[in-house]
Design a protein around this nucleic acid. Sequence first.
DNA 1: CCGGATACTACATGATAATGTAGCGGATAT
DNA 2: ATATCCGCTACATTATCATGTAGTATCCGG
Lengths: 211, 211
Amino acid sequence: MAIKILLYDDNEALRQSMETLLSEEPDLEFMAGIPNAETVETDVRQLEPDVILMDIDMPGVNGVEAVRRIRKFAGELPIIMLTVFDDNENIFRAICAGASGYILKRYASLEVPAAVRNVLSGGAPMTGTVARKVLLMIPPAHNPDQEKTDLSEKEISILQLLVQGFSYKMIAAQLKISHDTVRFYIKKIYDKLHVHSATEAVSKAIKDGLV
Amino acid sequence: MAIKILLYDDNEALRQSMETLLSEEPDLEFMAGIPNAETVETDVRQLEPDVILMDIDMPGVNGVEAVRRIRKFAGELPIIMLTVFDDNENIFRAICAGASGYILKRYASLEVPAAVRNVLSGGAPMTGTVARKVLLMIPPAHNPDQEKTDLSEKEISILQLLVQGFSYKMIAAQLKISHDTVRFYIKKIYDKLHVHSATEAVSKAIKDGLV
DNA sequence: CCGGATACTACATGATAATGTAGCGGATAT
DNA sequence: ATATCCGCTACATTATCATGTAGTATCCGG
């Protein structure tokens, strides 16, 4: 049974060329090309595609928002972005919304058929330059830390509560230890983290991934 | 001129099979297969490969560490990880270290030649399942927030200082405003963020990407 | 059995934070 | 022009925090 593909794009010419492209692949079936994502929920529920190709720049509901809506009721349905935008901002938003792949239109005819098959086998098809940018999105925050601030188990649990905004009193009640013991541990935490206030400790804890 | 490829892998059989594989590609040249990364700096400087294929599990210096070392003097040199590990931990570390691609060994014979060409054209070749995991690494923090906690410019600058562990006094001095004005703004920030302490505010600010 | 390391509790003190109320000047609008 | 809002300042009160010093109990190895 052929792979059923649903396309969202406001460009008439592109919809037609994608239909032509996909009709040449015997294992792929072009279901429909829809020019806007206003009714994306009902579209998808009725048509039940195997893969969705999604443009970003569309009037009304844009492609990223459409992905977000689909993800609310179809968490696993593969959605491949198909767009001219290759800036970090759009790539990042699309991925955060839940896109499963990202192909640039100028490589569409070359890459889309393979991308559709790839995404169904558990992959995440991306045009080369996009993939490169995605890799660069990974480390920016997590790169410069030194990792080895070893806090004891108890210290970490206290730090976690602190991060959640608990006062010393509340922490003491929660952990069933004395108010002063909380102070004692927090002092040790400050020493190990080289900070002198709760806000600094929380900041460091989150940024260094200690919680 | 053929693309010169340098391989690091402690497995003799794999080195040979990669040599065989690459020798069948006229545009690719297998330079050498090195069983450990102890001398990676001098190796790379002397051999000047166009692309490096890097195993992770090697005695002595592991592949991730080797990538880190190479990145110190060759920031752009393409390095493709070639490993059996497909766990998030290894993938994440490799990417943070500066890997340009990530191929699983069981798909090596299929994917390596294309991956080499791809990486040189600015791509980031990854085995499908790896790419999928990379996408999932992107959103975890930035996903669930609603983005619309609109703080004024001044409120944000105060919040930033608060995150850095500044006291009210220090913020007042830094921004050249009154101590009480700082209080005034922080109160407003608390209202908008629905919190009642500095630690909560800092936590929310970082997690919601307000700073 | 002792000295010491650990884990926890206790008390004290000065500083800082949290929250409320209120006054003032400038900008806006009606 | 006057009422109102906004940015900023001010003062007051109570709670909470940061830090230091010190005491108790338990466990461990010598």
